[in-house]
């Protein structure tokens, strides 16, 4: 095993080009577990800790450019207003120690269906800034997840940043685990209201081979809200609409049975979370939401 320590982004790209099998390591929260438990022996470890810019973010007009290594704790602390869904998701990540090290770049690189950031990114709308010595490209988040723990990156590419649309409305995030802290998702659900476009976007975690959006549920809800004039009136969403939305969200799942939960439970729980997060965001939209402590 070789340990590559690039001092700059350019050096990192060069190293990745030279050694496409090199495994990038930033927070180490996935890679080191695999090494400690002898599940993985990469030929090269590519340390990204020395590249300071990866831990920085810029808030732009439309979006936040979030460096790949910005730790979850910083997202929780500094980006609650701009990225409320991702901030909530960040708060559900493992433990304070892990949130101090892990970041969205690692979540995307691992592309586990259980990664906590994915549903929030899908709901908010985002693009992954991937770069190699050949150039830079922006990969829409909807096209990023290509299979179980597989993503759209080329072997020589590294994730430099994620461009996430700034919230133009309330966002929520829920995750089911059988413990009240430090738990991997049994399943998760992210929801973002986009009042500017009068649309709702969603993201489902850990209930399909990849993180997915509940597109039918979104389409149904967008139409129902539009037809009922809900965006203008701000009236309470009728239970029938919420119920149908939840059912369609459940239907968007393609889960498996595993040690963390059954497929049937995952479908069921995603429906409940879809209904609840819709209720919470809509209450916030109407200006009647409760404030939260201990979340984000």
């Amino acid at each position: 095993m070789d340990f590559l320590r690039p001092a700059s982004w350019e050096e990192a790209l060069a190293a990745k080009a030279e050694h496409p099998t090199a495994v990038p390591i930033a927070g180490g929260t996935d890679v080191m577990v695999e090494i400690n438990f002898d599940h993985r022996r990469p030929e090269y470890l590519l340390d990204l800790n020395r590249i300071g810019e990866l831990s920085e973010w810029e808030v732009g007009q439309e979006s936040v450019r979030l460096g790949a290594s910005v730790p979850y704790s910083a997202i929780m602390e500094h980006l609650r207003a701009e990225l409320p869904g991702l901030a909530l998701a960040s708060h559900t990540v493992a433990s304070p120690q892990i949130r101090n090290r892990g970041g969205v770049g690692g979540n995307l690189g691992t592309a586990s269906p259980a990664g906590d950031a994915h549903p929030a990114l899908l709901a908010a709308g985002a693009e992954v800034e991937a770069e190699s010595v050949r150039g830079t490209r922006l990969i829409p988040i909807d096209a990023f997840y290509t299979g179980v723990k597989r993503n759209a990156l080329e072997p020589d590419e590294l994730i430099r940043a994620v461009h996430i649309r700034k919230a133009d409305g309330p966002q929520q995030y829920s995750k089911v685990g059988t413990r009240n802290a430090m738990v991997i998702a049994v399943c998760a659900f992210g929801l973002a209201l986009h009042p500017e476009t009068r649309t709702v976007r969603t993201g489902i975690g850990s209930a399909a081979p990849t993180p997915v959006r509940a597109k039918e549920a979104e389409a149904f809800l967008n139409a129902a809200l539009d037809e009922g004039g809900f965006w203008e009136s701000g009236k309470i969403i009728t239970p029938a609409i919420a119920k149908q939305f939840a059912a369609l969200a459940s239907g968007a799942c393609n889960p498996i049975d595993d040690v963390r939960g059954t497929a049937k439970y995952r479908r069921h729980a995603v429906g409940i979370m879809a209904r609840r997060t819709l209720g919470w965001t809509w209450e916030q939209y109407r200006g009647a939401g409760r404030t939260l402590e201990g979340a984000a």
Partner: peptide, 20 residues
Amino acid sequence: GTSVDVRALPGGLSNTTHGE
């Protein structure tokens, strides 16, 4: 106004219920 502390609720930090 009213505030919900999810840490004291089932699901805890995972923000699954605000009392529902």
